[in-house]
Design a protein around this nucleic acid. Structure first.
Lengths: 141, 141
DNA sequence: GCTTGACCTTACTGCTGCTGGAACGTGGAT
DNA sequence: ATCCACGTTCCAGCAGCAGTAAGGTCAAGC
């Protein structure tokens, strides 16, 4: 099959397949006489694997590692698990950061009237005004 | 003061200050006779504003919008609030995505023995094996 | 006067992970 | 003959900086 078919069957865009080849995530495809890349079912499987792993947020480098383990019949499942643990750790940390941000934003939003008047605790906070002054009676900036 | 001092006082790296000037987030600084950029307290205030806004995850473009509102004495606080609401929405969506990923990863990790043996439900899942077969009695790939 | 070291300047490259476009060749149907 | 969908390569661009090169400047110490 050509790249378009492999792309459709795997869920990876043809453009992205070429990119993956370019960065070495997948080996260079065999070519037909006309120069077209030729793919087989096994390649589609690999692309699906990649697609799922990327969907779980693994970096392209990590996907490369996972692929290597997948192909290694003598792998230890502990190595795969470690990769996943490392990743879930990163994800958890990222979630924490975003939760902190969300909380801070919600606090600020709650305090802001959101009307026609210029006074705004959000801007006041960004500007570094953090005292307890009633923002309705002062100039934020 | 020079850029290094402004950087230290604001928390923004000197390099980043130049970048912000380059992309138009802040106006070009006045120069001394020797070509050095010269900053004043008001610039440090602006940089701190930017630093905080970036810390809350606002994009550089959004920070530009916030800065414009900050400087606009006739702004409506509703406009600021809308920006914040839009952003907190994006953050919440991102958190949701990451939560979904985390859940999926944890489910997989839980199923994986993580020992010396090659059998690994994580790889099996990525490979698309999703039936209920006991993974201990089959070959994942 | 000279060196040292910290600071400043510009300009360019690289990072992640694609995505879009230009400019062109190919294949199959009408 | 023509058309369109598909394929090819290469180059540029997104965000938001960080790193590095190759220099200029300035104050302090000897």
């Amino acid at each position: 099959m050509n790249i378009g078919t492999a792309a459709k069957r795997s869920g990876v865009l043809a453009k992205t397949v070429r990119y993956y080849e370019g960065v070495g995530l997948i080996p260079p495809a065999m070519r037909r006489a006309n120069g077209y890349r030729r793919y087989h079912d096994v390649d589609v499987q690999t692309l699906r694997f990649i697609h799922r792993a990327r969907g779980l947020g693994f970096s392209v480098q990590s996907v490369a590692d996972l692929l290597a383990l997948w192909r290694d019949q003598n792998r230890a499942s502990a190595d795969v698990r470690d990769l996943a643990l490392q990743h879930v750790d990163d994800v958890a940390r990222k979630i924490q950061e975003l939760e902190t941000i969300r909380q801070a934003l919600n606090d600020l939003i709650e305090k802001c009237h959101g009307d026609n008047r210029p006074n705004c605790p959000i801007l006041a906070d960004l500007a570094g005004i953090t005292d307890g002054t009633d923002y309705d009676r002062r100039n934020d900036d």
